[in-house]
């Protein structure tokens, strides 16, 4: 078994109908708003935000709420699918012989949200954008553990995903729903998220990894586990 721990300073999450931390803490029932609802990003200039897709909007919403007025904090943006609906639109256009839209392409790339946030905040802190299949959130936690150091004592992890377009749904084993999650790590914080992995020891979970982790953050559970095709991930929240 491999394990590491991460010092948690703050978290925020967003889903349609569940747009504040309080709603996540209160709500045990499913969010009620239609899944097409988009996240509020009015903190970004209208000319800059107009081309953002729904996944980037969710990511930027939670990133802003978690950062507040803090700047200069290195960031990890993680998404399994990114703006896949947009990429599919581009591919279908190409297949039909249309010209590729430069604007659609520019914000379909995986680091689009990171780029827009750095422009909106005039913040030159480094950012990475990662995708690692169904274990994307877990690999973002590994990335955070690897980067937290005296040189980078604080880090913001932003995870966002939406269901794949219908054309790809047969390839996805689990139920997907749109949501985003931001975690602020700070080496000075005593509260720890302990992460342990071991070879998968059961049937794969039928929920997204991030939705398995959220009950720890909301205080509904102290311990949770998620199993994918390769690994079982186990999380424990502890006050050191």
């Amino acid at each position: 078994m491999d394990s590491f721990s991460l010092p948690i300073a703050a978290w925020e999450a967003w889903a349609p109908g569940r747009t504040t931390r309080e709603e996540w803490i209160d709500g045990s029932s499913a969010p009620s708003a239609p899944p097409a609802t988009t996240a509020d990003v009015t903190f970004i200039d209208p000319m800059l935000r107009r081309r953002l897709g729904p996944v980037s909007r969710m990511a930027l919403n939670v990133a802003r709420r978690c950062l507040g007025d803090d700047r200069g904090i290195p960031m990890i943006f993680a998404s399994r699918h990114g703006e896949l609906a947009r990429t599919l639109t581009l591919l279908e256009g190409m297949a039909a012989g249309d010209e590729v839209s430069p604007a659609t392409f520019s914000l379909s790339v995986h680091n689009a949200a990171a780029g827009v946030l750095s422009i909106a905040h005039q913040d030159t802190a480094p950012a990475t954008a990662i995708a690692a299949g169904e274990e994307t959130l877990g690999m973002a936690l590994v990335e955070a553990a690897a980067r937290l150091s005296p040189a980078q004592p604080r880090l913001l992890l932003v995870y966002a995903d939406a269901p794949v377009p219908e054309r790809y749904q047969a390839d996805i084993a689990m139920a997907e729903s749109p949501h985003a999650l931001a975690l602020l790590f700070d080496r000075d914080q005593p509260r720890r998220l302990q992460v342990a992995t071991r070879p998968a020891d059961g049937a794969p979970s039928d929920t997204m990894m991030s939705l398995a982790l959220l009950p720890l953050l909301t205080g509904h559970r102290r311990q949770a586990a998620w199993t994918g095709r390769h690994c079982t991930w186990e999380w424990t929240l502890a006050d050191a």
């Binding site: 000319m47 081309r51 010209e99 839209s101 430069p102 604007a103 520019s106």
Partner: peptide
């Protein structure tokens, strides 16, 4: 408008 808008407008 920005440079991406210029490309998009050209298309």
């Amino acid at each position: 408008l920005d440079s991406i808008d210029a490309l998009e407008l050209g298309v």
